[in-house]
Design a protein around this nucleic acid. Structure first.
Lengths: 187, 187
DNA sequence: ACCTGAACACCGTTCAAGT
DNA sequence: ACCTGAACACCGTTCAAGT
């Protein structure tokens, strides 16, 4: 892994969170890194390959973050309560979105190799939530747990999308609070 | 209003639902309508103007649809129950998104005149939901009602975004069902 | 009134060629 | 191994000209 490759990946990740896959462009990315647009091609054969690499890395980092949170606390209720904070961070940091939420919106325009990672990101999150929910309530049916995990993931994504179009962190917090009151995050 | 202008508007609407504002381009649109790209400028001075016109029309049609549903039924519980079906329709019709949800994801790249309509669409929907909720429970505080309306809108949007990236209507239905069970649609 | 062809300036993508 | 120049395709836009 060269430094240049890593620098491109980092720049692309930041840009993809704000502008999606479509908003990724070699020339701006290169300028940020200090090379020419064409040079990115040496590290990533195509835009699709770059997009897939960025999404894959994002997915991996996210999964690692979730596991770290879980292994540290082992407290399902606490983890579920903290979960929406992960998505809040992107909004705090320049009104960005979760990259895979952003890319889900442009799903039909994504190369297949990127689609796989975007879908995988959601799968990872829902599987993680299901695991935590099961730890809290082992007797709940797998189907009901899956359904709850999906509801949590969709709600948090929707709240982020809504808050973003108003550049309003408070809107995010209040929406999450409404879900909390309804017991969405309570196993 | 000429037929051509209407045809461009219709083509642009369909395309924007699938590909967003960025995915709109004059040449493809023109081809669909049977004219040349340059000719669209006779009807819409710029891409921003076209985008704003499309979003505005979409917003107006949507608001009219909500009001029609309400005036026909006057039953808050029934209307709330039917609300998620509106967003389901877009998925049914070629795995499309609600246009303004789609555009919310690319919000930072939108011209101001388009932003106004995207934000207005969400405002319309939340105001409508608040109205219906108030009709059912007049004694609930305005703040609590607003919060619930926001939660409903965000949840439905999130469910749509999730279902879309799997081209899976059942995922949408099951997510909505999870919210229903939690009482999200029950005033 | 409505549409077109040609041109413009710009930008992302690609690839043969450079070091 | 790593990078670039230059060509290419495509974009929104303009405008004189056509019907």
């Amino acid at each position: 892994m060269s430094d240049t490759r890593e620098a491109v990946l980092a720049a692309a990740r930041s840009r993809a969170q704000a502008h999606g896959y479509t908003g990724l462009n070699f020339r701006d990315l290169a300028e940020e890194v200090g090379i020419k647009g064409a040079s990115i091609h040496y590290h990533f054969p195509s835009k699709a390959a770059l997009g897939a690499a960025v999404a894959k890395r994002y997915r991996e980092d996210s999964a690692a973050g979730l596991e770290k949170m879980w292994s540290k606390s082992q407290d399902p209720a606490a983890v579920l309560k903290r979960y929406p904070g992960i998505f809040r961070k992107a909004l705090e940091d320049g009104n960005r979105m979760c990259m895979c939420g952003q890319m889900a919106a442009e799903y039909d325009d994504l190369p297949d190799e990127v689609k796989v990672e975007v879908k995988g990101f959601a799968d990872d999150h829902m599987a993680f939530l299901a695991k935590v929910l099961t730890a809290a309530k082992p007797d709940t049916s797998a189907a009901a747990t899956r359904q709850r995990a999906r509801a949590i993931y969709a709600a948090v994504t929707g709240a982020q999308l809504l808050a973003r179009s108003r550049a309003d962190l408070k809107a995010y917090d209040e929406t999450i609070e409404a879900y909390r009151v309804m017991g969405l995050f309570t196993p």
